[in-house]
Amino acid sequence: MITASMVKELRERTGAGMMDCKKALTACDGDMEKSIDWLREKGIAKAAKKNDRIAAEGLTRAAVNGNTGVVFEVNSETDFVAKNEKFLGLLDEIQAVLIENKPADLDAALACAASEGTVADAVTTATATIGEKISLRRIAVVEKADDEFFGCYMHMGGKISALVTLKGKADEAVAKNIAMQIASMAPQYVNRDEMPAEVVEHERKVQTEIVKNDEKLANKPEKVLAGIIEGKISKNLKDLCLVEQEFFLDPNMKVAQYLKENGCDVVNFVRYAVGEGIEKRQDNFAEEVMSQAFGG
């Protein structure tokens, strides 16, 4: 059964109209990812925007101490609580614990000793004290070599945090600029070599269908069509790669050029945005009307 909330989510992710979204979901038996592709192949949706719905509150944080960098996210139910002194104090404690203990994953982090038992205990205490569900959602601990540089940036007090490791002649200013690039432009990979083959093949499938359905290209030779498809793949995937993005301080320059001019390369990066990938229930009049219309 196609529900109003499914139609709403597809609209948010593709920008397509309500009826087109319902038609896509119906054609794809309610499969969200297939429906996105269906809309793209029909030329109704220009791009599939994934993980761009901020559906939980809280803060992320990035911090550096010597050769250790950490990035983590702590969620709360409301943005108001994210400004609470006790909540901010919890982030301070978690930051210190992560830098000192360098846990390998979230479970290990929650088991680390804290001021009140473990980090898990500290989170539970914060939940009881603040009166909202608080959770440590994810962590990343990054170690760098002595000849590498960290770039660290937090946007809007921690709504987005980025940590990047550079090698070469980079200095702190260059490293911070790259961290700001990552925070603002949300790349998923350093370069095309890091991109999984299945990501490229998926885009090739979508673009092949788009070209196949384009009447203007109906009489083009196969070789020409193949070139058009590869060009579209490259265009759509370039913004997923950090080095292929336009540099935010100079749109006439690619990030790769900025790095080359400063004699450095990116080793790795981590970017967290608050609530990305979490869906939060939102009751409003528009959804209620859609619910009645679609029987959701």
Rank of each mutant, 00 (worst) to 15 (best):
D171T: 07
A173Y: 06
A27T: 12
V224A: 13
G89D: 04
A47K: 14
E73K: 02
M154P: 03
E194W: 06
A173P: 02
E203P: 01
L25K: 00
I94H: 01
M6W: 00
K220T: 09
I2F: 00
Q95A: 12
V141I: 12
M18S: 04
E203N: 12
D31S: 04
I99N: 04
L110G: 02
D79Q: 10
K102N: 06
L225E: 05
G275C: 03
S115N: 13
A62V: 10
K46H: 07
C264T: 01
V206W: 02
I94G: 00
M154R: 05
A16W: 00
V274G: 02
Q292D: 11
M156K: 11
E222A: 15
P187H: 07
D250E: 15
E100R: 07
E194R: 08
E222T: 10
G227V: 05
E230T: 11
L39A: 04
A24N: 04
P251H: 14
L88M: 10
M154C: 15
R192P: 01
I160F: 13
L90T: 01
I178A: 01
F72W: 06
V274H: 03
C21E: 02
E261R: 06
E57D: 14
N67F: 09
A63R: 02
H155I: 09
K42L: 08
S76I: 03
R138S: 08
C241N: 08
V199I: 15
R281S: 12
G275Y: 02
P251C: 10
E201S: 12
A111K: 15
L25P: 00
E261S: 11
V123K: 02
K8A: 01
N191K: 03
E73G: 01
G263F: 10
K133M: 08
N75T: 11
D37H: 09
G227Y: 05
T3L: 14
I130W: 05
A55I: 10
E244C: 12
K169F: 07
E85M: 09
E222I: 12
A122S: 14
S35A: 13
E288Q: 13
R40Q: 14
S5Y: 01
A104G: 12
S161V: 02
A104W: 05
T129Q: 13
G66N: 12
E172V: 12
T165Y: 01
T124D: 14
F248V: 15
A293V: 09
C112S: 13
C152M: 14
R13C: 03
I139K: 00
Q257D: 14
I44L: 13
I36M: 08
D171R: 07
A218P: 04
R61W: 08
Q181A: 11
I160G: 04
G277S: 08
Q207N: 11
D146E: 15
I134C: 04
Y189E: 04
R40N: 08
L136Y: 03
A286W: 12
N213C: 11
N75H: 05
N51Q: 11
A162S: 15
L259I: 04
E93A: 02
